[in-house]
């Protein structure tokens, strides 16, 4: 194949249009280096193709230019030697200054946003921490309460309602070793505002004061710790007037009572 035949074989067009195989491309690139006429034919077709493409150009929508150029990470400012900028700050063009202004404004906005976010996150974190601490405290309380009945030293007295309030029911857990007394008010009617419940230990028919029951407290805790009892055969709860003179003697009605 002569050079003329090679040039007119379609390889020039195939190469330029990107349709040639790798093998054909390699050969063609070699031929271009060895034969100026091949290179000339290639350049001629490229120019013709370019001209043809220019004549049939379709203008893209105008908004596209900004979108496309802003999507590229230009190193444009880097082409100015950094030392020059530092040593001649006054020579920085006004255009760059305005750019800096916008950048500074943007930084401030970002900083403000970041601070706001930090504060609100910090507050949220504090709230969560408080909720968590409360939950842990409550859980420990409940755990402690649950441990009491399972302690082998602890005896239980189920106090059933008296005639005056048959549905009332409360439970006493008494630790025979430590003498601690815990009260579980399963079901006691809310007392009138001027009265309060009082727990008693009964020993040989005599009542021993074990303390007043804070009715509100019962709503919050499963087991309420009362005064210690050295010895007891039974327990009872009476409804007493608030602030009476001698709290060691029961005066009001008995609501519940139960033996160990």
């Amino acid at each position: 194949m002569t050079i003329e035949e090679y040039i007119s074989s379609g390889i020039v067009e195939g190469y330029v249009l990107g349709l040639a195989s790798d093998e054909e491309r390699n050969e063609f690139e070699k031929m271009c280096k060895q034969h100026p006429e091949v290179l000339a034919a290639r350049t001629a077709f490229e120019i013709a193709l370019e001209k043809q493409a220019m004549e049939n150009a379709v203008a893209p929508p105008s908004f596209l230019k900004n979108k496309i150029l802003s999507g590229l990470n230009f190193s444009s400012e880097n082409t100015i030697a950094p030392a020059k900028v530092i040593s001649l700050p006054a020579a920085v063009p006004a255009k760059n200054l305005s750019w800096l202004k916008y950048a500074a404004a943007a930084c401030l906005i970002l900083l403000a946003g970041s601070i706001y976010l930090n504060i609100s996150l910090s507050n949220k974190n504090k709230d969560l921490q408080n909720t968590y601490n409360n939950s842990v405290a409550e859980l420990n309380e409940v755990k402690k309460g649950m441990e009491i009945p399972s302690n082998p030293n602890v005896k239980m007295a189920a106090m059933n309602g008296m005639d005056i309030s048959p549905k009332s029911f409360a439970t006493v857990y008494w630790d025979t070793a430590s003498h601690d007394v815990y009260l579980l008010a399963n079901n006691l009617p809310a007392p009138p505002t001027d009265k309060q419940y009082q727990l008693w230990a009964l020993l040989d028919g005599k009542p021993i004061d074990l303390g007043m029951l804070n009715y509100d407290l019962k709503q919050k805790k499963l087991l309420v710790r009362m005064k210690n009892a050295q010895d007891a055969q039974a327990f009872a709860i009476t409804l007493e007037k608030k602030n009476r003179a001698n709290v060691a003697v029961p005066e009001g009605d008995m609501y519940v009572m139960g033996k160990l």
Binding site: V58, A59, P60, L64, I68, L69, L72, N73, F74, S76
Partner: peptide, 15 residues
């Protein structure tokens, strides 16, 4: 990767 050069390239060849 000069911005002006690419802008020129775009203006001349994008269509």
């Amino acid at each position: 990767r000069n911005e002006k050069a690419f802008s020129y390239l775009y203006d001349n060849y994008s269509s």
